[in-house]
Design a protein around this nucleic acid. Structure first.
Length: 993
DNA sequence: ACTCTGCTTAGAGGA
């Protein structure tokens, strides 16, 4: 096969690459990116059996284990990459992990029998593995007992291979390195140095990544002489199989090692059960076959969708590697469920799929519990998630770490280069090392890096890629501190580092895992399938008396006293539900209060509750309120992301304070509270593998995509979704996925079952004039004010008179609109910028409107002058760019305490005064999609309590149907004020006040 | 046609 290749974009600079022997099976297509290893002679490369490698999509790093697992079944290897969360651990795996750690620590410190015993005790009875032990329902004693059997082999191995071993102890080691003597195979191996533990290597050269158990310095004594090599040492705790898979893993590590140092030419494979060690030469032949395997894997992982043949250009899911014909291997396969599911739901819809005949009955049997509707649901959501993942991958900069120099990446704020390590590295807890970094030249460059962000630490030198990963603990003007997973203190003092912000790296793991779980043959999944996919009518019981325990009646009655009518109705509906309830929380109707009351009532009735939402903020919002009552709760999730006042309720903090070190105590903690709170993504926590809940409450459910929302529902009898589909839906980036319906939340989907819906209509936020806008446009008049006080409330501007006098002095009577805008009784006004003029500016990545921004800042400053607290004012706009301009205008002035944010971010929040900048202003039909969404407009209109001021160009905005409706209404109410031409010029003068 | 939040993520072993 001949390839025309180019190292640059210019078409003249081409070379020829000839693929010989079976290299021509590489699934390479025109336009693909490849990396070549080998020699180039006068513009042509020859890759054949003897020399050269072709690496397909080298920037896709595939792990060593994934490649070696693909030897037996490539389909499984691909599925395991996609359905990561479906790979649940086992007792043997945990034993393996623990033994790895013991050996790794022992080999670096001391392999003496009593020291190993001591170390093992410390590790097994320490806090590190408690969660996994709980997950598997194992006792620490069991693990201890099992691992003790390995220790004699540790000593045996140490005697055989460390500290000048005698020849006779070793059972005939054989190893020949190309760089060594002639036919001298038998040798004696001596480990002289332990250089690293769990060394993390990313190799964009071979398209591989991996973590090396141990990196050792080895002396190879042949009769003809001695050689020294730095080699990977791979540990295995299972049967001494010396299998192809194990050996392949080591061979791949010999490739990875080349990223950091000379070719080791071989690696070592140590079976800890027996203490026997095998040499694994990194032969050209084996390396070549493994790289070809990796290329195939890469091709499958990259091409996960294809355009349908039907000419309608619709994207559809691509087929996976074929099903293998080995029912024995499939019997125990951890991906069996996903394998047959994909075959039935996706591949059997295609024409050209061949399945080994022996496997057909297996696939049928394993999927017989699924109806066509279920398979279609799986297919559609898998496709949409895949499309959306691709949209995200375009932006995420994980490969930028090696593709872009730090200096260039710094410009986007996602990287800081030229860093040096300072002070000591502190081991905060096991596997967490606190590092301090300082810029070589003193001050840090501007950066987006925030506390709690994920970072990857690399050396600026190419050989030190991906040294460690962790979280930012602190950033200030001169230094950054990070909690990293590896201790970097052994590197030379003058090593120069770069810290890269790891964005987006998170895939579609959780939603895909949930989707897979929904298709399982279990009663919980079956119930959810019938409710969610087949729209089975939710059931309700008749009488409260059967759920309400007599002893709880008084408490419940007391809680109900504090609620309004629709809220009470919601409580009743939830208690009566057998399946689910949907609570529509219209703006300002006290969703948080309602959820809080609901939790208290459920607790009083003796139920346990799982409380979730998509974001940490939403979860903590409820907990902040709940903390005032006598309902105990446990908050799961990373402390850094949790609200400071809630941190003391997190698992991590409690475990730290009580220094919990036994599974029994951990289990006690998990069972101690009636309420568990976490984000929807947190459902992979071990607690959910064992605990069941009576109710699950999901807040902001209308903003969560279906497969994500599904997660917490599996471990609960009944669920309550709280949301408002008239507000913003889940964010979907990929247009095709959006068109296929990906932004439909579970809340929206289930809302068609009217009998499950309760609406909260009494609101306490907006005064009647502001409320009436969204009441007219969206809620069909259902909203009502909670009280006369709410209805009549206006903004408090103590210094308004003084300000008005000053304004008159400066502007005379020319700006009458100004007085109207400031007047507290004018709760709603729209300022038409048509005549000003205030044109928009469309740049790549955003839309903005400087003139509008200036007006916004001017108005804001007037309100502050009139005596309004900056924290009572909010500025919102649909466009991020506009916010940036507004913020920049305000920096350094007294206005800068005002919160400026997007409409999307303001959902769920409110302020006394809200200023909305609509931005759009052009004469051509250039229309964005943001303003076409009436839900976004609804959110914008319902954030203000007392005063809502909108700015925009009326004729331009009339292109957007939702805004046209709004403007028409405002016009009929005479709430639109036309700004006279040249307003801005006079505005500048006023700004000098 | 620009709205953004979730995440320890390579390997632990079994047939």
């Amino acid at each position: 096969m001949h390839l025309t290749i180019a190292a640059s974009q210019s078409p003249e600079d081409t070379e020829l690459c000839i693929l010989r022997n079976d290299w021509n099976s590489v699934p390479v297509l025109s336009g693909d990116i490849i990396h070549l290893e080998g020699a180039c002679n006068s513009g042509s490369w020859i890759i054949n059996g003897e020399s050269g490698y072709l690496i397909l999509y080298p920037d896709l790093l595939i792990s060593g284990t994934t490649v070696s697992n693909s030897i037996r079944c490539m389909r499984k290897a691909v599925l395991s990459e996609k359905f990561r969360s479906c790979e649940s651990g086992s007792r043997q795996m945990l034993v393996g992990t623990v033994l790895h750690e013991i050996f790794q620590q022992a080999i670096t410190n001391n392999l003496a029998a009593e020291k190993v015993q001591e170390l093992a005790f410390k590790i097994v009875y320490g806090p590190k593995y408690l969660k996994e032990l709980y997950h598997l329902n194992l006792k620490q004693e069991e693990i201890m007992q099992e691992i003790e059997g390995y220790f004699p082999s540790f000593s045996k191995w140490a005697e055989d291979y460390m500290c000048k071993p005698s020849q006779d102890n070793q059972s005939k080691m054989q190893l020949k390195l190309s760089s060594g003597g002639k036919k001298d195979l038998s040798c004696n191996i001596e480990i002289t140095q332990v250089l690293d533990i769990e060394e993390n290597i990313w190799s964009p050269r071979f398209g591989l990544k991996g973590k090396l158990d141990v990196t050792v310095g080895v002396k190879i004594h042949h009769s003809s002489g001695t050689q020294y090599k730095i080699m990977p040492l791979e540990l295995k705790t299972g049967k001494e199989s010396n299998s192809i898979e194990h050996r392949s893993q080591v061979i791949l590590y010999t490739l990875l090692s080349q990223e950091r140092r000379m070719d080791p030419e071989a690696g070592l494979l140590l079976y800890l059960k027996t203490g026997n060690m095998h040499t694994v030469p990194g032969n050209r032949l084996d390396r070549r076959e493994l790289i070809k395997l990796r290329n195939q894997l890469a091709s499958y992982l990259v091409h996960n969708v294809c355009k349908s043949a039907m000419g309608n250009k619709q994207t559809q899911l691509a087929s996976l590697p074929p099903v293998i014909n080995d029912s024995q291997a499939c019997k125990y396969c951890s991906q069996m469920h996903n394998c047959v599911l994909y075959s039935r739901a996706v591949e059997q819809q295609m024409d050209d799929i061949i399945i080994p005949s022996a496997m057909i009955p297996v696939i049928d049997r394993e999927t017989q519990h699924l109806k066509l509707s279920h398979l279609q649901y799986f297919n559609l959501w898998y496709l949409m998630l895949t499309l959306e993942l691709q949209a995200g991958e375009g932006k995420k900069g994980y490969k930028n770490i090696w593709m872009m120099p730090a200096s260039e990446r710094e410009k986007s704020g996602d990287c800081i280069g030229n860093m040096i390590r300072m002070e000591q590295v502190q081991e905060v807890s096991d596997g967490q090392y606190l590092h301090y970094f300082q810029h070589k030249s003193g001050a840090l460059p501007g950066t987006n890096l925030l506390v709690g962000d994920r970072v990857v630490v690399s050396g600026e030198e190419k050989t030190l890629l991906g040294l460690a990963a962790g979280y930012v603990k602190e950033v200030n003007m001169t230094k950054v501190s990070c909690l990293l997973d590896r201790n970097l203190s052994k590197l030379p003092k003058n090593t120069i580092f770069r810290l890269d912000h790891e964005e987006g790296g998170f895939g579609i793991d959780v939603p895909l895992g949930n989707l897979s779980k929904l298709m399982e043959n279990s009663s919980a999944s079956e119930k959810l399938r019938s409710l969610i996919i087949d729209f089975r009518k939710p059931q309700f019981i008749q009488h409260l008396s059967s759920v309400l325990p007599p002893e709880a009646k008084e408490t419940v009655a007391n809680i109900l006293k504090g609620l309004n009518k629709p809220q009470k109705q919601a409580m009743k509906q939830v208690l009566l539900s057998k399946d689910y309830t949907l609570i529509v929380g219209m703006p300002g109707t006290g969703k948080t209060t309602t959820i809080c009351a609901l939790v208290r009532i459920l607790y009083a009735c003796g139920f346990n509750v799982l409380l979730t939402s998509f974001t940490h903020t939403a979860v903590d919002n409820i907990l902040l309120k709940l903390a005032r009552f006598k309902v105990g709760f446990l908050r799961l999730g990373r402390v850094q992301k949790v609200h400071p006042d809630i941190q003391k309720f997190t698992e991590e903090e409690i475990c730290r304070c009580k220094s919990i070190k036994s599974v029994i105590h951990l289990e006690e903690l998990y069972n101690s509270q009636p309420v568990i709170a976490t984000t929807c993504m947190g459902v992979n926590h071990p607690i959910f593998a064992r605990k069941r809940f009576d109710f699950c409450i999901v807040d902001e459910a209308s903003q969560i995509s279906q497969p994500v929302c599904l997660g917490p529902l599996f471990c609960s009898q009944k669920f309550v979704l709280v949301g408002d589909h008239q507000q913003l839906p889940p964010l979907v980036q990929n247009a095709e996925a959006r068109d296929l319906g990906m932004s439909e939340s579970l809340f929206k989907r289930l809302e068609q079952n009217k009998n499950a819906v309760v609406q909260l209509t009494v609101q306490y936020r907006m005064n009647s004039k502001i409320m009436s806008l969204s009441n007219k446009l969206v809620y069909e008049g259902k909203l009502e004010c909670g009280s006369e006080k709410v209805s009549k409330a206006t903004v408090n501007l103590p210094d308004l008179k003084k300000l008005n006098l000053k304004l008159e002095l400066f502007t005379g009577s020319s700006e009458t609109w100004l007085k109207e805008v400031l007047e507290p009784n004018n709760s709603v006004c729209f300022l038409n910028t048509e005549k000003v003029p205030a044109p928009e500016c469309v740049e790549k990545g955003g839309v903005s409107n400087v003139m509008e921004a200036k007006l916004v800042v001017f108005l804001t400053s007037l309100f502050i002058k009139a005596g309004c607290k900056p924290s009572d004012i909010g500025i919102i706009s649909p466009y991020r760019h506009q916010l940036k301009i507004i913020t920049d205008l305000m920096t350094g002035s007294y206005v800068n305490k005002v919160e400026v944010n997007t409409v999307d971010k303001y959902q769920g929040r409110d302020k006394s005064i809200i200023v909305v900048s609509f931005v759009r202003n052009n004469t051509d039909d250039n229309i964005g999609t943001l303003l076409k969404d009436w839900r976004r407009l609804n959110v914008a209109l319902t954030r203000a309590k007392h005063k809502l001021i909108m700015l925009g160009c009326v004729p331009s905005l009339c292109c957007y149907p939702p805004l046209e409706k709004l403007l028409c209404h405002l016009n009929s109410e005479a709430l639109i004020f036309n700004l006279p031409a040249g307003t801005h010029e006079r505005v500048f003068q006023c700004n000098l006040l």
